[in-house]
């Protein structure tokens, strides 16, 4: 059956993250927040961040999304918490290349998110995977401007 190809996209770890996402909810002591919409499907993600001493101290996400976007948001928070802003930005670039099917030098650094490489074979879903990462990238850029 052709559905077996779906396993490349929806690996068990991805389904687990989507069904039991990490860091879903809100942060009471957030320093930064952002909302991003995927206009093609209407999915929306809100990120709340606590950025202190140039580091992403904590993140929570909320909103509506598909399996891919929820799993990706969960994986993103796992890997980002504790990173410096520069490291976090670097990771967003690496992830963007990964889901476009490009070589990524340090795949390990992406944690579970590395398993989203199957998205490259489903181009219509790349935006689902990158929504939370783009949101973070924008939040980091805005946070940088505030300090300058």
């Amino acid at each position: 059956m052709a559905l077996s190809k779906l396993d490349q996209l929806y690996r068990q770890v991805i389904l687990d993250h989507s069904q039991h996402p990490h860091h879903e909810g809100t942060l009471e002591d957030s320093t930064d927040q952002i909302e991003l919409i995927n206009p093609s499907c209407g999915d929306v993600i809100q990120l709340q961040l606590r950025i202190e001493e140039d580091r992403v101290q904590d993140i929570r996400f909320s909103g509506h999304g598909c399996t891919i976007s929820r799993a990706s948001a969960s994986m993103m928070t796992d890997v980002m918490i504790g990173k410096t802003k520069a490291e976090a930005f670097e990771l967003t670039q690496g992830f963007s290349e990964l889901v476009q099917g490009k070589e990524v030098s340090d795949v390990e650094a992406l944690g579970d998110a590395a398993l989203l490489n199957g998205v490259a074979k489903f181009p219509a879903r790349i935006k689902c995977a990158t929504l939370s990462w783009k949101a973070l990238e924008k939040a980091l850029a805005a946070a940088g401007q505030d300090e300058n």
């Binding site: 499907c41 999915d43 891919i68």
Partner: peptide, 12 residues
């Protein structure tokens, strides 16, 4: 999610 349904149906 509808997007997951549509991707899966496309495989069929």
């Amino acid at each position: 999610h509808p997007h997951d349904v549509a991707t899966a149906m496309d495989m069929e």
